[in-house]
Design a protein around this nucleic acid. Structure first.
Length: 749
DNA sequence: GTTAGGG
DNA sequence: CCCTAAC
């Protein structure tokens, strides 16, 4: 504004603080901080749920159930497969009956959100479930949003028998994970704990989840007899295949189809988020840091109460009554309402884990306990007190993941590169969950959306970190990222992308990432060997990652659409030596390089994913890590002092632009903070000062300038108080004063 | 998006 | 340096 220009006046270059805001340039600065939206996929939760169901089924199978009578055979009923193109309004109903436990009902429903067309899925706990006294472990996810339009998967604990008569039973769980643009997960179950020989027929079952519209590429094979499970299909579009269809006969190229489909209706068919999307937290289309932060905090606070009301009510009571240890209960209760960050140790049961939903805790159990459905281990205090049967108590340990599901979307903001990570294919992660004696791991997993923008000058290490942040945000940590270029692992974290050969011109599909279990991450660790049997009873099983299988290989695509937003590289002066030591050793180990074709999935709209993360984030996996400390050099201080002398305090943006425009890592907030500390430093005795000594001369200038501008500020305020009537008056007076070229204010010199 | 201030 | 309220 012109006004300001005229107010320059003498002393020491000081200027009258002329309506700072008026002078702000409209130019936008490129944020250089990565932003990650906090959304989570609850794939694991979902899987856990499913797995839990499986186990239950299995467990419940009567020992004498070898009688595979006709009744024993499962009826697979797939109906209601309505297909609506954009809408994905379809539902599939799968029903399996078990003569022994018909009372168990498991319903999975999914629906398409009417508001945003995003599909969600949820599990509903059927009423009958509550009365089931033999439901060792139940996983229930409820979503209030589910409704009419939702597809319903009805699972009556039973065996799904292959209609073709052959044993291999295909199980498909679509919707669950389908998380966002078709999450894909492949699970492998390994039954390690032969508890009941009879029951242990399911020694190995691999379970794969396919993206919504995509039929299983690989048949799910259940080697065991008690076929179990089920699943609903996610987007419904797929239901041409029944359980028996999957005998490997699936066209392996469904990916294409899937992609295409999604393309047209990225919003409508898209994804199923596993988790309830809470209205209050529904993301806005464009996620900003602010919003993220807000949800991060408020989310937790708000969710808890709601959970209490809705999903925890029962268990709560139950808890109260059955808990021997009141204090424990108390603790759980109180912690429930704490913001996520403060809740670091809530390990008991899922019941208490209000935000955790289907967190791994609660699904773990030692085999021994599974026999009688007594989960004494993980819930040592939950049973018995009221005389209720253990199994009943267990039954209540259902997972309340109502608010815990969802996924994270990422809104990365950086400079040069915008990676669109689409698929973490094949080998995504190796996570093991232990359900009684069953162990399964997720072999592949698709991350719906991941945007990573990163400067060309960024190092491989920072790329890894960035990806890791994004991924861990989804998966909850415990992983490390490997970078693959042309199938080769890039191990040097210090190389820049350019040096490595990664450039915009490259075909981005040449770049891949591997997700590997992070050995450095320590878990409560009970079973390093992965032997579920060794899990201590009283410890919830975290979604432990074992260095077993190298994670997945992810493809990264370059999203051209983001190109325009790229800031000019030329001005990128930033010394992004984000020297922050990587939290974990990012080195790659022999990860499988069996990368697959990249699937272009349209970025999904960020809106819609709004769920409370179910996992506790490890400190390491904090989405946005604290910036490294970068002490100001004397030169910087000098520049700062000079700028402030000229511009005054309170115009930090201008100071930044004037003196630190090239220092990307110095934000105006940093400068402001530095000034604050400088002032403080100047006031204390030299002996008390720490760090690189700042020349006294500079400190003197700091004090002088500070005093001056403080005074100035006071005057301004006084002036405004005296003449509040109109800014115009002030304006006129200033203009008049300035027009006389001598500033009028004060000149001390 | 900036500022100001507490943490 | 972070976080946030207030603007």
């Amino acid at each position: 504004m012109e006004l300001q220009k005229r107010l320059d006046y003498g002393f020491n270059g000081y200027q009258v603080p002329a309506t700072p805001r008026a002078t702000r340039s409209a130019r936008k600065r490129v944020p250089f901080k990565k932003r990650v939206e906090d959304k989570r996929i609850s794939a694991f939760d979902l899987l856990a749920t499913v797995a839990g169901k499986l186990l239950l089924d299995k467990e419940s199978t009567p020992v004498s159930s070898n009688t595979s009578s006709a009744e024993d055979q499962c009826k697979v009923e797939k109906n209601t497969v309505k297909e609506e193109r954009r809408d994905g309004n379809q539902s599939s109903k799968l029903e399996t009956c078990d003569q022994y436990s018909n009372d168990r009902e498991f319903i999975v429903s999914q629906l398409v959100s009417q508001t945003n067309d995003l599909r969600r899925c949820s599990f509903r706990k059927s009423p009958s479930l509550r009365n089931d006294t033999h439901f060792g472990l139940t996983s229930v996810v409820t979503t209030s949003d589910c409704s009419e339009r939702s597809g319903v998967l009805k699972l009556m604990n039973g065996k799904i028998k292959n209609e073709t008569g052959s044993l291999p039973c295909k199980v498909e769980t679509g919707p669950f994970l389908c998380g966002a643009s078709g999450g894909r997960i492949k699970l492998e179950f390994e039954n390690k704990g032969p508890i009941h020989e009879e029951l242990d027929r399911t020694d190995k079952l691999s379970f794969r989840e396919v993206a919504d519209t995509c039929p299983l590429e690989d048949p799910v094979v259940v080697d065991g007899k008690p076929p179990l499970l089920v699943s609903s299909d996610s987007s419904g579009k797929t239901h041409s295949y029944g359980f028996n269809n999957h005998l490997g006969s699936f066209p392996g190229k469904r990916d294409d189809l899937k992609v295409v489909t999604r393309d047209d209706d990225e919003k409508s068919s898209g994804c199923t988020y596993l988790g309830p999307i809470k209205k209050p937290f529904r993301p806005t289309p464009l996620i900003g840091d602010r919003r993220i932060r807000k949800t991060m905090t408020s989310k937790y606070l708000k969710v808890a109460p709601r959970l209490n009301d809705v999903t925890l009510s029962n268990s709560d009571e139950n808890l109260k009554s059955s808990y021997c240890d009141r204090s424990a209960y108390k603790r759980i209760r109180s912690e429930r309402n704490y913001p996520f960050k403060k809740r670091k140790f809530l390990h008991y049961s899922s019941v208490s884990n209000s935000d955790g939903g289907i967190s791994s805790e609660g699904i773990s159990d030692s085999p021994e306990q599974s026999i009688n459905g007594n989960a004494s281990g993980a819930y040592p205090k939950m049973r018995g007190v009221t005389g209720e049967s253990p199994s009943l108590a267990d039954q209540r340990k259902s997972f309340h993941s109502r608010d815990s599901h969802g996924m994270r979307a990422f809104d990365g903001v950086i400079h040069m590169y915008c990676f669109h990570l689409l698929t973490f294919k094949e080998v995504l992660i190796s996570k093991y969950l232990s359900f009684y004696s069953v162990k399964f791991r997720i072999k592949s997993f698709r991350v719906p959306e991941l945007f990573i923008e990163i400067p060309e000058s960024a190092t491989i290490g920072s790329l890894k970190r960035t990806v890791m942040e994004a991924v861990t945000a989804i998966l909850g940590g415990g992983l490390r990222i490997g970078v693959l270029l042309q199938g080769k692992k890039v191990r040097d974290d210090n190389k820049t992308l350019l040096q490595t050969g990664i450039s915009r011109d490259n075909q981005m599909d040449a770049l891949g990432f591997s997700l590997e279990p992070n050995p450095s991450q320590t878990f409560p660790s009970h079973c390093p060997g992965g032997s579920p049997l060794t899990f201590p009873c009283d410890t919830p099983l975290p979604l432990a990652r074992y260095p077993a299988t190298p994670g997945l290989v992810t493809r990264v695509t370059h999203d051209p659409s983001h190109e325009p937003h790229m800031p000019n590289l030329g001005h990128f002066v930033e010394s992004d030596h984000d020297s922050a030591p990587s939290p974990t050793d990012m080195s790659l180990d022999k990860s499988t390089t069996d990368s697959k074709a990249l699937v272009a999935v349209p970025a999904m709209s960020v809106e819609a994913l709004d769920v409370v993360p179910a996992h506790r984030k490890s400190k390491r996996s904090e989405v946005v890590q604290r910036r490294i400390r970068r002490p100001f050099s004397v030169a910087e201080v000098e520049a700062l002092v000079q700028a402030v002398e000229k511009l005054g305090t309170g115009r930090w943006r201008d100071v930044k632009l004037r003196a630190f425009d090239n220092a990307k890592h110095r934000t105006y907030v940093d400068l402001k903070d530095k000034w604050k500390t400088l002032v403080h430093t100047a006031r204390i005795s030299p002996q008390q000062r720490r760090g690189e000594p700042v020349p006294q001369e500079l400190l003197d200038r700091v004090l002088t300038a500070h005093a001056y501008w403080s005074q100035q500020q006071a005057k301004q305020q006084l002036k405004q108080q005296q003449q509040p009537e109109s800014c115009l008056l002030l304006y006129n007076s200033t203009v008049r004063a300035s027009s006389r070229s001598d500033g009028g204010e004060k000149n001390f010199g």
